[in-house]
């Protein structure tokens, strides 16, 4: 190991709060000791990462309050050193941390709130793509429909939540008192996506739409979608419902492409 190698590893270990002998490589001056000088970097390290987390999880911060949010950030920084070149992506593991770790996982709504905030962040700067229009589909030959598959634009994300986390998120966004936590009878699905005006949107998904949009996003065909809808509707209603969903996905600027055999 070269001297530079050794210095950098010791410096990093120091920043991460691990055993390090970096101090003996640093000059003390009458104004400030080596330890005091290094401490400026230790403070800066945490401050910078906390600033990034605070930017990304504003609503979670509002829900928990300063003290509890700080303990979440402390644990995150301890568990997840950054492997990112861009601070934008530093806190991507927050939902996982809140789901895995006690005491945070005793309140599952926290992981769900973090998931919602992350979905909006991902939607905000997802890749720009050309969108499918109603005219594109209208031009298809009738025989194309059976094997028709869809590509959704990159900002489209489906969130399956077990609590009333979205109403809580909405209240926090409006700076209102959030409702009490309630566990849902069954998982509730929401969709988050960005439209061409670069604004992110969200809405709840009814059970039937949630079932088929997930299939569509997995690359299943229009025929598969219709078959799934038979779980909810009769044979007469099913094609109308399928077309209705497809039209709304196009009008809401969710579809980026289609393919068929």
């Amino acid at each position: 190991m070269t001297k530079l190698d050794e210095l950098q590893h010791h410096f990093l270990h120091y920043l991460l709060g691990q055993a390090s002998d970096i101090e003996r490589h640093i000059e003390s001056t009458p104004v400030l000791s080596a330890a005091g000088r290094l401490n400026i970097y230790a403070n800066g390290y945490k401050l910078r990462l906390k600033e990034a987390i605070t930017t990304d999880y504003e609503k979670l911060h509002g829900y928990l309050g300063d003290e509890q949010f700080d303990s979440v950030m402390e644990r995150y920084i301890e568990k997840y050193p950054s492997h990112q070149t861009n601070l934008r992506y530093y806190s991507v593991n927050m939902p996982q941390l809140l789901q895995d770790e006690t005491p945070f996982n005793s309140l599952p709504v926290l992981a769900e709130l973090a998931t919602i905030e992350q979905a909006f962040a991902n939607s905000f700067d997802a890749k720009d793509v050309a969108l499918v229009t109603i005219e594109d589909l209208a031009a298809l030959a009738p025989e194309a429909w059976a094997t028709l598959q869809f590509t959704f634009q990159k900002s489209v994300q489906i969130l399956s939540l077990n609590y009333n986390s979205f109403p809580i998120w909405k209240a926090l966004a409006a700076e209102e008192t959030p409702p009490d936590v309630e566990q849902a009878d069954q998982s509730n699905s929401w969709i988050v996506w960005r439209q061409a005006d670069l604004i992110s949107h969200y809405r709840p998904l009814a059970t039937e739409e949630a079932a088929v949009i997930e299939l569509a996003m997995q690359g299943k065909t229009f025929a598969d979608i219709c078959e799934k809808l038979l779980d909810f509707f009769d044979e007469q209603q099913t094609p109308i419902k399928a077309i209705g969903f497809l039209q709304s996905w196009i009008q809401e600027e969710m579809l980026a492409g289609f393919d068929y055999e």
Binding site: L7, L12, Y45, R48, H83, Q84, L87
Partner: peptide, 16 residues
């Protein structure tokens, strides 16, 4: 330097 062992300090750390 900012990174070592692929861990990014997100700080502009000095060199000898």
């Amino acid at each position: 330097w900012t990174t070592v062992n692929h861990i990014n300090s997100h700080d502009l750390l000095p060199l000898p």
